[in-house]
Amino acid sequence: MGKIIQFLATDLFKNKTIFLYLLFLWVTGFGLISLQGQGEKILLALLNISILVVPMICLVFSIIYFYNMYEFLLLLHAQPLARSTLLISFYTSLSLVLTGVYLFGLGLPLYFSGAGGEGLLLLLTGSLWNLIFIGLALLMAIWASDRTKGMGFSLLIWVYFVLLFDGLVLLLMYNFNEYPIEKLVLYISFLNPLDLGRILVLMQTDAAALMGYTGAVFQQVFTENWGKGLVLVLLLLWALIPFSVSIRWFNKKDL
């Protein structure tokens, strides 16, 4: 498995898109610093970039890469390699490279912006988002043999997690506004890793005070160590569950 991961990771690093991605992160990261100075504003801006870019890149790039490497997968499959080994190798190399580029791409600007613990938490959350959305991409790639279909559904997933879910939550909140739904909203946020991570990072910043009573309820959970731990575990589950399902599907799939 190590050899395959090594090969795939090297192959990925030679990819032009990966290089452009890194360049994009640097340009936006350092651009923000030169425009907005330092501190929390940068952190929040980088958080916004992460929310927008990480799911998109992970979903689209991973699914295209998987389809492009399909023949190679078949070639490897002729060797005495378990299917789970193959998929784990793909997942690991994609995760290593995309997360590495993310960490390098935003970590450097964050370092220069003088962000402390909150910056590290953002990078950790962002890395988990990488793992989550690469897993979801592979799930889609395995579920749909047809490229167009796989691509379409992965974009749908993107829209769902980035926009649709929050829209539905907003609608729900509008309709149940008379009830004390702050706690419920907290649990609802568990259902979207992007919301969960975003709130986790926000709670460590001064922006939390802007969120009023909802912020206070969230802050009780998200600033305690056990709360942070819980969120990170939930995010890990968000990464592990889709991926383990994708292994299960892959084992039964006709290649």
């Binding site: 490497m69 002729a78 390699l81 378990a82």
Partner: peptide
Amino acid sequence: SAYRKNIGYMPQISRFP
């Protein structure tokens, strides 16, 4: 998967990265 170490396979169309 282990049994495949005894098999050599040449596909109809070979594609590589």
